[in-house]
Amino acid sequence: MLGYIWQYVYTSFLRYWLKWLVRQVTGKCELQRICSGCKPGVTRTSKAEYSLRSSKSKVLRGAVDADKNKLEPCVDRIMEEKSIKPQKDPLFKENLHTCLLQITGYSSLFVSVEELRKEVFDSENHEHEVMLLKLWDLLMPNVKLESRITKQWGDIGFQGDDPKTDFRGMGMLGLINLVFFSDNYTEEARQVLSHANHPKLGYSYAIVGINLTEMAYSLMKSGALKPHFYNTVQGAPELKDFHQLYCYLAYEFDKFWVAEEPESIMHFNQYREKFHNIVKTHLQEPDVSLTLTVCSKN
């Protein structure tokens, strides 16, 4: 209870006066001090985001929801609002613009991710079908698919004779992630598939892959992936950056699963939660970068 009271008092009263006092001493507003004194990446951008969201100024609060393509005039309005002269702080505009690109870009990326998640796999859609068949060809280049609906799909970890039923939770996002990993890290994807087909330590490759898509989606929705994207993308993150994050999860989960040597796939949820906690712990590190270190084809 005392913690909540202190937080309320600090955010409502003390923070404003402390900011005012420090500005009188340094001659710089809080945003200037952040943009000049903090390391680029999550340290700078997270502090800038908090400062903007906590501001009493509508101009500053509105900046975090601005159109990522209209940020330059937004930065100009902030500089005017805070009486910041370009000649006295020449790097401020560029540094704040980068922070806003990352902040608004994260929100924009989530919208794109959500749209793909909501897009239902449609067997009548030629592009959807082509993508599904591409997944098979990438993972099983020497095995011909006998028909569109076949038990062979179980060889790459789908549950039934028709994979479309397995995409219900994550929609096209799940399939796109599977194909992206298999297309850009083909050797690694086939290696993971071979582990998934192990007689003792095996798991359902495609189903687990879709489950990891859900993990990535949930982490992004909660904002937990901000440190990763703020550290690894010097601007607005795009869909390919989300897919790259998925590749990291798919590859690292396989390494984790093999190292743990579970007794049975029946314990999957237990190990999935343990891996999830490991990822969340990494995301709290200031220099976090959940990047797959092997080389991609592109």
Rank of each mutant, 00 (worst) to 15 (best):
E124T: 12
N69I: 06
F158E: 01
H228M: 03
K58D: 05
F167V: 07
A66H: 00
S296L: 04
M131K: 14
W153H: 07
G27K: 00
V42D: 13
V75W: 04
N277E: 10
F229N: 05
D122E: 07
W17R: 10
A259L: 08
Y8P: 08
E252M: 09
N95G: 04
Q152S: 08
E252W: 06
D155C: 11
G157N: 01
E214Y: 12
G27T: 00
G174I: 09
N277I: 14
L52W: 01
M220H: 10
P286V: 00
N142W: 15
A259T: 08
L96P: 00
V59R: 01
Y217R: 09
D137W: 14
P286Q: 03
I265S: 06
A63Y: 05
G41W: 01
L132K: 07
A259H: 09
L2N: 10
W6H: 14
Q7N: 11
W17S: 07
Y16F: 11
L133I: 14
R148G: 15
Y271A: 02
S194F: 06
L18W: 05
I5H: 05
V233N: 03
M172H: 09
F181N: 09
R272C: 13
L290P: 06
A259Q: 08
Y271G: 00
K82S: 06
V42T: 15
P286D: 02
L193A: 08
D287I: 12
K200H: 06
H243I: 12
G154T: 13
M131C: 15
P163R: 09
S36E: 15
R77P: 00
E72F: 12
V179D: 03
V233G: 01
